[in-house]
Amino acid sequence: MKTQKMQDRVFGIIVLAVAAFYTVFTFLIPLKEGSDIINARTMPLLLAALMWILGVCQLVTARKADDKPLEKEARDLRTVLKTAVLIVVYIALFEPVGFLITTFVYLFLQFILLTPADKKPNYLFYGIVALVVSLFVYAIFRYSLDIILPQGLITFF
């Protein structure tokens, strides 16, 4: 995204893509026999139409947008991606492995991952925080909110 114009254009295209996706699936909504003029597709159709209009408007206004280069926003996309992967693995294992183990591991790794470059990760401290948080949250949910978080491999609680 070097210029505002490019960013606006990309956004317009995303809006149109979402509109296209939504429109296709709107027409796949089954209708009941004898449905009136107003039925389950009415609202989605209206929204799809609005998305198309917004997308086109966005592309039209993007033509007039600033061509000057944007200030570079430094994004550390590698860390973002690693965080995303970590979160996905965490949620995927949440139920089979259980809350306590996954949360402990997730927190521990996430702490390390987000540690500022000029600092050394303090593994012992991270481990203790991760352990205390997972146990505390589990206990609160189990004993006062009556919600059993996934137990997974640890079933003796």
């Binding site: 979160i87 949440f94 949360t103 927190l107 997972s134 949250v137 978080l149």
Partner: peptide, 17 residues
């Protein structure tokens, strides 16, 4: 880097609950 992962865990359990 400590606070926000904990917030995330709370979001996860809140949603699960």
């Amino acid at each position: 880097h400590i606070l926000l992962p904990i917030v995330f865990v709370l979001c996860v359990v809140g949603a699960f609950g």
